[in-house]
Write a protein that binds this DNA or RNA. Structure first.
Lengths: 184, 184
DNA sequence: TCGCACATGTAACGTGTTACATGATTCA
DNA sequence: TGAATCATGTAACACGTTACATGTGCGA
């Protein structure tokens, strides 16, 4: 029963999906191919090995579903430990590095926040807005250091990154307001 | 003399940097650590092997700079073939898949567009705006298929992606206007 | 002479990508 | 009976990450 390693983003994605809805490897494949979650990789060559790793580490368990239809599927669902690992991932503090380089993983985390009480989503969005604001301030300072005589395209690409982070902060605040309305 | 493989994003980043300014592996390391380009990985363990691959494939060449200072550095610069490969990468048509999953690589490409005449940047930005618009339309349709009764966070995360692409299209058009002003 | 910045690497490891293999079940 | 879909995998390969190794020249 592996203590061991931090799951991959892909493994977390799979863990979250089977927590939302227990399903087989093939079902997962379909999901990855047909929905936006497919941005986190894809293809049997990644999914099946990831599933097996999760099973070896005791985070998911597959049981054969013999409500005979086509072929019997192995339906995976999180174990108690898997559920724990997933939830602690979802609640994990948002770091500067998450914002810097793993914004997509943060969004994946948020997508699974329906597994937690709404208060967790509120905290997530507050924390995100704060972290992103700080990072935007940092980037803005860096932008001012760009020499004016330099060719413009580098600066422009940088500005795009900055724009995205500004949009992220706005998004977080807008979503946050929706949670207030929903729970009042 | 390797014909051979498409360079990695990291390899293109390095190729572009030495095209802008010939430099040593260590200089590259500094650049990756200290600037926004560091979002494309980092650390000696990636840079040095990538440099050597580029050299083996004949895309860059390093010459020892013995204008004796500290230790002699090996200064890398693109070969004729490397320059060609770089430029054809910069001019490559923008695909849906680039937009879907490699927006960061697209921005890297644009950042190096100062190596090309301004007309290339205009074409790039026009093409990007068009491709992104189409993709936004596609995503908007998908958004409408989300069931209303589903938990909201998944939809919200999806909306964030959509927002980013809208911001991207706006950015492309704004930059495009700057190029008109600059060249009129 | 101690330590730090300069400068360049290498080895182990895990994981994702691509491409291929296999076999069951349904339907035309 | 053949094709398409369901369902699950495996093998080769390359790359990035992490961590470690090594040595030089300079200033305190």
């Amino acid at each position: 029963m592996g203590r061991s390693k931090e799951p991959t983003t892909l493994e977390f994605a799979i863990l979250g999906l089977v927590a939302l809805q227990p399903q087989s490897g093939y079902d997962l494949l379909q999901t990855f191919e047909s929905t936006a979650i497919g941005n986190f990789s894809s293809s049997p060559g990644a999914i099946y090995p990831a599933l097996r790793r999760l099973e070896q580490r005791g985070l998911v368990h597959g049981a054969v579903d013999d409500t005979r239809m086509l072929r019997p599927k192995k339906i995976f669902r999180p174990t108690a430990r898997g559920d724990e690992v997933l939830r602690s991932w979802l609640r994990r503090e948002i770091t500067r590095d998450d914002v810097r380089r793993r914004l997509d993983e943060l969004m994946l985390r948020f997508a699974f926040h329906c597994l937690l009480p709404a208060s967790a989503s509120r905290e997530f969005l507050d924390e995100l807005a704060r972290e992103v604001d700080e990072y935007v301030a940092e980037l803005t300072e860096q932008l001012e250091l760009f020499p004016d005589e330099a060719p413009p395209q580098g600066r422009m690409a940088f500005e795009f990154g900055l724009e995205n982070y500004r949009a992220c902060a706005r998004w977080a605040r807008r979503m946050r307001r929706q949670f207030e309305e929903d729970t009042r």
